[in-house]
Design a protein around this nucleic acid. Structure first.
Lengths: 127, 127
DNA sequence: ATACAATATACCATTGACAGTATATACTGA
DNA sequence: TCAGTATATACTGTCAATGGTATATTGTAT
């Protein structure tokens, strides 16, 4: 994977947000969809692009597909995520907000969907 | 300037190389052309894109146009340049090589073109 | 077997980035 | 004023990324 591939990837704000979210832990497609407020198709395509690139991996749990960052996370990605999370620009703010939204959403899921994937809700007291 | 604009910019290896070179000091268009081995038109366009973005500034010295990084250099750019300069990937190597090429080229210019711009060759004993 | 939920893919139209050729501009020196 | 050098811009064709609609796939529950 070349640096330019990584930059091309995170040049899309939505893909950057996805990486940022998954950096905090695995998530299902539908949850990413909900947090980013994008259509199912679009989310699925974005994820496919990043999986193709080798940045993401996925596994199935029931009907849910759980995506997570492929390990090891390229240093270039981690460096940029860390930098932006520490920043104060509009985009930085968004990334911080997303982490908060992720936490809340996981709690809701855990309560509402007893069948939600262990790998996503496991940290909370769900399932 | 948004983070995504910056990423889009450095997602092009040539633009990344240009930023990396200018990070070491101002350069004329023709020298950038020579180091990167691209056509005049292409170089001019790349520079225009980055100037438009606010990343570069230019001033004229005789017939030469001298480009330099706009100050302050966005932290996101500096962070990435620093990261890559410390790395060992192919692209990192390229950036390191470019710095060396830059040093050599400036010396040659200084000797061959007594009319070369102060702001470029000033550091060496030219002009 | 059927219906449904979650997700992926195929197909298509639109848009935007990019490369190349030709031409214009700005300056210098004779 | 004219020629030459350095650089920029206009114009055009091409290709890749993107978004949407429809449809397929995979698994679950009845």
């Amino acid at each position: 994977m070349e640096a330019s591939d990584i930059y091309k990837c995170i040049a899309d704000p939505q893909r950057l947000r996805i990486l940022n979210l998954l950096d905090a832990g695995p998530l299902c497609v539908c949850h990413l969809q909900e947090i980013l407020e994008v259509s199912q198709v679009k989310m699925s395509k974005q994820l496919a692009i990043m999986k193709q690139l080798g940045l993401l991996e996925a596994h199935r749990e029931g009907t849910w597909m759980v995506y997570h960052l492929a390990q090891p996370v390229p240093g270039l990605i981690q460096t940029n995520l860390d930098y932006l999370l520490g920043g104060k620009c509009a985009e930085c703010n968004q990334l911080q907000q997303d982490h908060i939204a992720r936490g809340k959403l996981i709690q809701v899921i855990a309560q509402d969907s007893p069948d939600c994937p262990q790998s996503v809700c496991g940290q909370e007291q769900c399932c």
